[in-house]
Design a protein around this nucleic acid. Structure first.
Length: 423
RNA sequence: GGAAGGGUGGCCGAGUGGUUUAAGGCGGCGGUCUUGAAAACCGCUUCUCCCGCAAGGGAGACGGGGGUUCGAAUCCCUCCCCUUCCGCCA
């Protein structure tokens, strides 16, 4: 949620921001509703004050045994007026809140302007693409060939967008999860958490999935319960409605979770293989940061995620998302894109964002600063990494001429000593 | 899922319609006293919103929401959560 004071002070800034994001929004409606709400509130508070004093007076008179019938009649009228205003206030406030929850975050000044992903700006590159003296296969063919990915049975069990991992494929997935968790806890100082994978509506509102992106979420029928699209949701909500001590910041969590995404529609090449699935695994990094240092935390979070790819020896690049491609809740996002030899492209494997106080405001997540003031903190998160896509990248980048796949050295201990997967 | 009992400030806990401005205690902070500390004593100890340049004034919050009433922590409805027991279950 944006700070409504910004909207009051300089609505043109919000209009400009929405234009940069290619978004249409009835800003004027919000401003008028807000004005209306404050007018009602002012009048309501005045009347309630009057009612309070008068009611107290009646209590005293009654205790003395005086007659209060006349006064009661007058107060009944006052009380009725308060009731009417209260209903009005509730309605306007609800309407205003509905709109406010659908306004996206304001991009940070360092975010490049642009319309689509094509305007994202590459900021760094690490390593170089592997060279093959043969035609590299796409990961789904490799996976089938060496018998670790079963797409047909995945579809039989659940439908398209679900894959069955078998044997060393399943092992590889868990090896990566363990490896990533170890790396972030032992080397980067994150605290490991294991969260619920279903959450209520309030949690989804905090992080920004609801109310706007309802159609992308799996919901449990007849219950206030959603399957998480990312561990970001439960982890960020750990401190919802809390006031944290300043000394505790930054708080850094790492969480493994499966992620469930409905996301209707297919996306070109990604319909094949495990790049785009309705269910996938991810190791997620979440930070609760002091507002003054959140952009430093963003850089170090990016480095923490990059480090996984470096250890795995996978070539990647980092782009900063332009205003048109930036996510709803985010003020600034870096995407890490891993090299996929079969497509000769870079594919998103991690998304690292600073939400500033946008989620904190929605979830009422605050801290008390050294002067005793209560302030919203900043939340950040990043994939560290998407596990399914990491498997795809390993299969493609570590494939060998004979069809086998070498296991990156750092993973061998997690694979119980297995150094390659053969058909 | 069923039954019973609960949910009050950072924590414990009193409060069953009206000077409650939520008692009392613990913890915490500040002060007095002291060479220093402890003890004792005194004071302070939530958050949100509205009006106002400010000083200041007002409103709301006792699990959430709604209702009754001039007036609700207190009565009614509803939902959520916790505890215990039963059922089911890994």
């Amino acid at each position: 949620m944006i700070d409504i004071k910004i909207l009051r002070r300089s609505p043109e800034a919000i209009v400009e921001m929405l234009r940069k994001r290619n978004m249409d929004f009835p800003v004027q409606d919000v401003i008028e509703l807000d004005k209306k709400m404050r007018n009602i509130k002012t009048e309501l508070d005045r009347l309630r004050g009057e009612l309070n004093t008068a009611s107290k007076r009646i209590g005293i008179k009654k205790a003395k045994g005086e007659n209060v019938d006349e006064e009661l009649k007058i107060l009944k009228e006052l009380s009725d007026r308060v009731s009417v205003l209260e209903d009005e206030f509730r309605a306007v406030e609800g309407e205003l809140n509905c709109l406010l929850l659908k306004i996206p975050n304001i991009p940070h000044e360092s975010v490049p302007a642009g319309k689509s992903s094509e305007d994202n700006v590459e900021v760094k590159r690490w390593g170089s693409p592997p060279e093959f003296d043969f035609d590299p296969l796409p990961h789904w063919e490799i996976g089938k060939k060496i018998g670790i990915l079963d797409f047909e049975r995945g579809a039989k069990i659940s439908g398209s967008g679900f894959t069955l991992y078998t044997g060393l494929g399943a092992r590889l997935e868990f090896a990566l999860i363990s490896f990533m968790l170890d790396l972030h806890t032992k080397e980067h100082g994150y605290k490991e958490v294991l969260t619920p994978f279903m959450v209520n509506e309030k949690s989804m509102i905090t992080t920004g999935q609801l109310p706007k992106f309802k159609e992308d979420m799996y919901k449990i029928e007849g219950e206030d319960m959603y399957l998480i699209p990312t561990a970001e949701v439960p982890v960020t909500n750990i401190h919802r409605d809390e006031i944290l001590p300043e000394e505790s910041l930054p708080i850094k969590y790492v969480a493994y979770s499966p992620c469930f995404r409905l996301e209707a529609g297919s996306y070109g090449q990604d319909v094949r293989g495990i790049i785009r699935q309705h269910q996938f695994n991810k190791v997620e990094l979440v930070k609760f940061s002091h507002p003054e240092t959140s952009y430093d935390e963003l850089e170090s979070l990016l480095e923490d995620a990059e480090y996984v790819l470096k250890k795995l020896g996978l070539h990647y690049r980092v782009v900063v998302l332009c205003t048109g491609d930036l996510g709803f809740s985010s003020a600034k996002t870096y995407d890490i894109e891993v090299w996929l030899p079969s497509q000769k492209t870079y594919k998103e494997i991690s998304s690292v964002s600073n939400f500033e106080d946008f989620q904190a405001r929605r979830g009422n997540i605050r801290f008390r600063d050294s002067t005793g003031r209560v302030r919203y903190l900043h939340t950040l998160n990043g994939s560290g990494l998407a596990v399914g896509r990491t498997v795809a990248a390993i299969l493609e980048n570590y494939q060998q001429k004979d069809g086998s796949v070498r296991i990156p050295d750092v993973l061998v201990p997690y694979m119980h000593g297995i150094k390659e997967i053969k058909g």
